[in-house]
């Protein structure tokens, strides 16, 4: 799997290169700013790009803007945005056009190497990976809308895990329940939110989150 890394802090960048190489990824380029990232993506066309939001020269959101550009110009490239803080507006901007092949994780998540690699693989193959913090913020933002208010606490937990990008089996493992129970919760959630119950795709959940976060 081919990866491009854009991160301005040298030690973090080197650490990521080491981690990913060690895990069998091919790191095509590791750059320190958004322009170099655009160039590297255009030439290497990787499976996934890991992008720090705050990079030179302005240290505000150039990484995010580059991520949005890449999603528009190179639809096959997964984009994993990587940040030290959670900004709900950034998440909604990132999810705006289509909730596929996209991720938004806190940098802290690299500490759990297996989870991080898992999320990266998911994004590279067109799935999603949202940080629990991001999901929490989005769900709190939408807590007062009809539908969402009707969910039980357990259903909210299931919805949050789905939004992070986990499969039904993953959710079952995380909550220590059987897959059958998870499926029942998912069906209830969809009924309460007025969504077609047959569609159990995560994208559907992301669409809901996007809707409630406005």
């Amino acid at each position: 799997m081919r990866v491009v890394i854009a991160e301005d802090a040298a030690m973090m960048r080197e650490g990521l290169v080491r981690l990913l190489t060690d895990r069998g990824f091919e790191v095509c380029a590791a750059v320190a700013d958004a322009d170099a990232l655009r160039a590297a993506t255009a030439t290497a066309v990787p499976d996934v790009a890991i992008i720090d939001i705050r990079m030179p020269p302005t240290h505000t959101d150039e990484g995010l803007r580059a991520a949005i550009d890449i999603r528009r110009d190179h639809p096959t490239v997964g984009v994993l945005v990587f940040s030290q803080y959670v900004e709900t507006r950034y998440a909604t901007r990132l999810l705006a056009d289509r909730p596929t092949g996209v991720g938004y994780l806190l940098k802290d998540r690299v500490a759990d190497v297996a989870d991080f690699v898992d999320a990266l693989t998911r994004v590279a193959s067109g799935g999603t990976a949202l940080d629990p913090e991001v999901v929490g913020h989005l769900m709190r933002a939408g807590r007062d809308t009809t539908g969402m208010a009707a969910l039980t606490p357990r259903e909210r937990e299931v919805l949050a895990l789905m939004a992070e990008g986990r499969s039904n089996a993953g959710i079952a493992a995380a909550l220590v329940i059987t897959s059958g129970v998870v499926e029942k919760h998912v069906a209830n959630i969809f009924t309460k939110l007025g969504l077609p119950p047959s569609d159990t795709d995560n994208r559907r959940v992301l669409a809901v989150l996007r809707h409630v976060a406005g």
Binding site: M12, G15, L16, L19, D22, Q84, K107, D108, A111, V113
Partner: peptide, 14 residues
């Protein structure tokens, strides 16, 4: 400090 600690966590994770 924040980036150093994140890198530190990553190294310990590895």
């Amino acid at each position: 400090a924040q980036i150093r600690l994140a890198t530190l966590a990553m190294n310990l994770g590895m």
